[in-house]
């Protein structure tokens, strides 16, 4: 998190050289990652941050077709990965809906005034995620034997 802030400050300084107006811009963009999210502790998103800012939708959309038609769910470019990592938590450790006011997806999309309708259908907090890529990878060594997997209740 400290790094993010340092980065923000650096960017702001850099921008300040170029012009005051853009300084505000850079600072605000950097702010959207929530301190309580897993993402805050990471150096980078799944791709370089600058790239993600511009192209995340292309990645998500590409992955969406791979998943729907090809059944490839393990890749890191899927929407469930975004939610898992960027979702914020309240003081009690409960995840907050990522499209809620002030949360990661919503605040940036509001700022850029770009419509967002992923969450018409997709879950806004990680829920029943046992089969998302992280957990599946963790269970990979078990998956050969049908009997050894956790039952529905455990998931």
């Amino acid at each position: 998190m400290a790094e993010v802030m340092t980065k923000g400050v650096l960017l702001a300084l850099l921008a300040a050289v170029l012009g005051v107006g853009s300084a505000a811009y850079a600072e605000e963009v950097g702010d959207f990652v929530l301190p309580s999210s897993k993402a805050a502790a990471l150096e980078n998103c799944v791709e370089p941050t600058e790239y993600m800012r511009r192209n995340h939708f292309e990645l998500i959309r590409h992955q969406r077709d791979e998943t729907v038609y090809g059944g490839i769910r393990g890749d890191s470019h899927g929407l469930s990965g975004c939610v898992a990592c960027h979702v914020g938590y309240d003081d009690s450790g409960t995840p907050i809906e990522i499209d809620a006011e002030g949360q990661f997806c919503r605040s940036c999309h509001a700022y850029a005034s770009v419509e967002m309708n992923c969450f018409d259908c997709h879950a806004t907090v990680p829920r029943g995620e046992a089969w998302n890529h992280e957990v599946a990878a963790a269970h990979a060594h078990l998956t050969g034997s049908a009997a050894a997997r956790p039952t529905a209740a455990e998931r």
Binding site: E66, Y69, G70, G71, I72, R73, G74, D75, H133, A136, A137, A140, T143, G144
Partner: peptide, 10 residues
Amino acid sequence: ANAAPRTDPV
């Protein structure tokens, strides 16, 4: 092919 999340299309 059966052991982990698939990486090739079905």
